[in-house]
Design a protein around this nucleic acid. Structure first.
Length: 321
DNA sequence: TAAGAGGATAAAA
DNA sequence: TTTTATCCTCTTA
């Protein structure tokens, strides 16, 4: 990754949807510590709310990427020529977050860098999706509300508004939405949000979009998708893991690629992955101990192995793709 | 304490 | 027969 694509780098961080000190960023901070160049008082961001949940989220996540890249590219993939103030002489082959920092230029930087860029984007996107989902989950617990805004009572809506206003330093708009339940709220257009709250309505609408999208993906990682619908045909564990990895929007919080090209992945939530596997195989007693034993059976078969630099919950497909 | 490694054996397909 | 599930002991971080 020598440089971000024009399309992405062209978007200045000031156009990010969220201010830097958002709860979403708290998740990102876990992986992008030190990317704090944006001052906490920065308020000149101009929201670009996603138009649709589908299109919106990806745009939104890519904006995150842009922010991270713009503010501190040291944690994103760097080309061999990229210089930083401090470069550890012996960087491990596998970065805990993104394994694109391969040593000695094993990171293939094609002149165009497109493949790598897409690769990095995919990784960042996968990671951010997971973090966003985690943060929404945290907010749900904190506020004692469901992840799906449609289910919110007017009281839940008020809680969410208060929390969002607080988190994102928006002007207080609670009264403007006082009588609304989640269903009504979700049915409102961005314009209607603006009418009720000229100052922060559009931002609120964008946040609500994220929640709506997140809950949509959340539905898919419940038992319905993983379970019975696909249980007709037998499936191998390695196939199942790849299935999950292919859907970062749905399962990125449980399992994600560290380096897709090398087939290195990390199980972020071992209990959940085991639970999903148990659902798929109709084995309610499945746990990570058993699942990991099955994974280890793949060692001899040359299907999965531990990466060269072994890390907890990190495995590698011997034959990626 | 959770994860990892691997042996042994049973069960399922 | 192959694959996975289950249970186990021991080691490692």
């Amino acid at each position: 990754m020598g440089s971000a694509s024009p399309g992405l780098s062209g978007v200045p961080p000031s156009r990010l949807l969220l201010p830097p000190d958002t709860v979403l960023r708290t998740g990102l901070e876990k992986v992008a510590v030190g990317a704090g160049a944006m001052g906490p008082e920065r308020r000149d961001w101009s929201p670009s709310p996603p138009a649709t949940p589908e299109q919106g989220l990806s745009t939104f996540y890519l904006s995150y990427f842009d922010m991270l890249y713009s503010e501190d590219s040291s944690w994103v993939a760097k080309g061999p020529g990229a210089s930083t103030r401090e470069e550890p002489p012996d960087e491990p082959e596998q970065c805990p977050v993104i394994d694109s920092q391969a040593p000695g230029g094993s990171l293939d930087l094609a002149p165009g860098g497109l493949t790598l860029e897409e690769h990095s984007l995919e990784q960042v996107q996968s990671m951010v999706v997971g973090e966003v989902l985690k943060d929404i989950e945290t907010a749900c617990k904190l506020l004692n509300i469901t992840a799906d805004p449609v289910d919110w009572s007017p009281g839940n809506v008020q809680k969410w508004l208060l929390w969002t206003e607080h988190q994102y330093r928006l002007p207080s708009v609670g009264k403007a939405f006082q009588e609304l339940g989640g269903k009504e709220l979700c049915a409102m257009s961005e314009e209607q949000f603006r009418q009720r709250s000229p100052l922060g309505g559009d931002v609120l609408h964008a946040h609500l979009d994220i929640w709506k999208s997140a809950s949509t993906s959340e539905e898919s990682w419940t038992d319905s998708e993983v379970g019975s619908s696909c249980s007709a045909q037998p499936i191998h564990l390695w196939q199942f893991l790849k299935e999950l990895l292919l859907k970062p929007y749905s399962y990125g919080r449980f399992i994600r690629w560290l380096n897709k090209e090398k087939g290195i992945f990390k199980i972020e939530d071992s209990a959940q992955v085991a639970r999903l596997w148990g659902i798929r195989k109709n084995r309610p007693a499945m746990n990570y101990d058993k699942l990991s034993r099955s994974i280890r059976q793949y060692y001899k078969k040359g299907i999965i192995r531990k990466p060269d630099i072994s890390q907890r919950l990190v495995y590698q497909f011997v034959h990626p793709i």
